[in-house]
Design a protein around this nucleic acid. Structure first.
Length: 180
DNA sequence: GTTAAGATTCCG
DNA sequence: GGAATCTTAACG
């Protein structure tokens, strides 16, 4: 490649706002196989491959928190894609989500598993994700972002988990994606 | 002010 | 199968 060093060619590519500003049904499967890079202090960062995601898509989606409209908690979902949405569930576990799509189209991807840690509650505990990450910008943050190392895993999909409160139409959407 | 329920996990 | 544990949102 003229004008590019071998090292540069092999560098992992940080995901841009263009990646996140697409529809969640494109972003959620595309995030599987990508790498979360997160600061562990002292100028060191740890890397974890995303192995499972779920899509939550707009106010009409009965499983999506934005189904109840704009509230203080869901405010960040109405921003342009690329922000982090975190919330506490059952008073115990933080859930990590990446906001997608354009402004005023509330969508988010739940990160359900990363390599080495199965389950959305366990992975946030491992990464130290808490309320302080609410609204964090994945494009400009220096403590967390996502990179593409070129992995293109074969994906499986299924219904979303833990949303039995939603009507059957939404409960049965095959919007959970995972590495086979 | 009060209350019900939750995008989960762990224990028995 | 059921508890843990506390924020959010709905209701009064």
């Amino acid at each position: 490649m003229r004008g590019r060093s071998r090292i540069e060619m092999n560098e992992a590519k940080k995901l841009s706002d263009e990646f996140f500003c697409r529809d969640v049904l494109s972003v959620a499967p595309d995030l599987v196989g990508k790498i979360i890079v997160i600061s562990s202090g002292d100028n060191t960062w740890k890397r974890f491959m995303i192995t499972e995601t779920e899509a939550y898509r707009g106010e009409e989606d009965e499983a999506c928190h934005a189904n109840k409209g704009r509230t203080p908690r869901t405010e960040v979902m109405y921003m342009q894609g690329g922000r982090i949405y975190v919330y506490l569930v059952y008073g115990i576990y933080w859930m990590l989500n990446f906001v997608t799509s354009v402004r005023d189209d509330p969508q988010a991807v739940l990160i359900r598993s990363i390599e080495g840690f199965n389950g959305p509650g366990r992975l946030t505990r491992a990464l130290g994700i808490d309320k302080s990450f609410y609204g964090e910008d994945l494009i400009t943050s220096r403590r967390i972002w996502v990179e593409d190392e070129g992995f293109r895993p074969v994906l499986g999909k299924s219904k979303r988990i833990g949303i039995d409160y939603a009507g059957s139409v939404w409960r049965n959407k095959p919007w959970r994606y995972f590495i086979i």
